[in-house]
Design a protein around this nucleic acid. Sequence first.
DNA 1: TCTGGGGTCCTTAATCGT
DNA 2: TCTGACGATTAAGGACCC
Length: 346
Amino acid sequence: MDAFYVAVELLRRPELVGKPVIVAGGGPRAVVTTASYEARRYGVGSAMPVSQAMRLCPDLIRLPVDMAHYRERSAEVMRRVNELGVPTEPASLDEIYLDLNGVPDPVARMSALVRRIREELRLTASVGIGPNKLVAKVASDAEKPAGFVVLTREQAAERFAGAPPRLLPGIGPKTAERLDALGVKTIRDLQAFPVGELVRRFGEHHGRGLHDRAHFRSDAPVARRELKSRSVEETFDFDIADPAELERILVRQAERLAAELAQRKVAGRTIAIKVRLDDWTTYTRAKTIDHRTADPETIRTVAMALLRANPPARPVRLLGVRVGGFEERRAERPAAEGENLSLLPA
DNA sequence: TCTGGGGTCCTTAATCGT
DNA sequence: TCTGACGATTAAGGACCC
């Protein structure tokens, strides 16, 4: 979906259409969640501090985040997507992969879908069609908004050859910087870079991944993914140094998190806290217990023990709690002769 | 008035059992 | 009893994505 949160907001604020608009959190430390295309012309973009965005565009209109509403509108979109009856993989509220293998005329089906979304929901979507998720993703981004790009792997490798490596998903600021230092300025440079050298410098996995990506090779299946962890975290408007206050906040977060786990009917074995200090140093501390839990008392007690064992040395900017390890623990070890598997812990 | 919140995946290191 | 290989698990940090 194109500028999804803003687009949804503009449906109820039609007088703002055509103006530079952002959806952003409140408070002095908020960042931009989504910017309208008009705002982007000023250089405003996602993840930018709102303070900076306002400096770039003083007339910027700032709307608060209303996730519950975006979730509802997203469900309306996703219902229409899923009516195609093909395997899907939601990537977020506003992105979804479809496995169109075996679908007779995928281009026609997808343009009909986009038309439906436009006419029934008054929202615009962009589509990328390709032989794998990587090509589809980059193609869908290429002509936003309302783009519709169909490419083979070879066409993608040629069409984006002149673009910076940063265009490829998985290559972020750090990797782009390291590649730049190696003289790799474009995807073409990356395509030509010896894979052995990439492996030597970035490691087996990442190195080979960079080479494959540059050539738009990808074999990740379209498959729905299970939730692995759930967390609650909060950046304070003002840094907090008082340990008692931090503990009160942690208790609230633990209880909120437990409620969400219960609602989703999941439970986990690993409980972790996250602390970000005023100088932006961040640490996490985790403890894995012998059973899965969603119990507020347990989560609160473990989180509190982790905080007390690791008291922040400076004022705290962010505090959070996480529960992970949802999946069933499975003994991979082959059974010894005569061993009774049924006596093993779950 | 620098830098959110909710996630995933990978790497590295330590530890433990067979 | 010691040693090494190896696989699994845990912990911590970091890169990346929307």
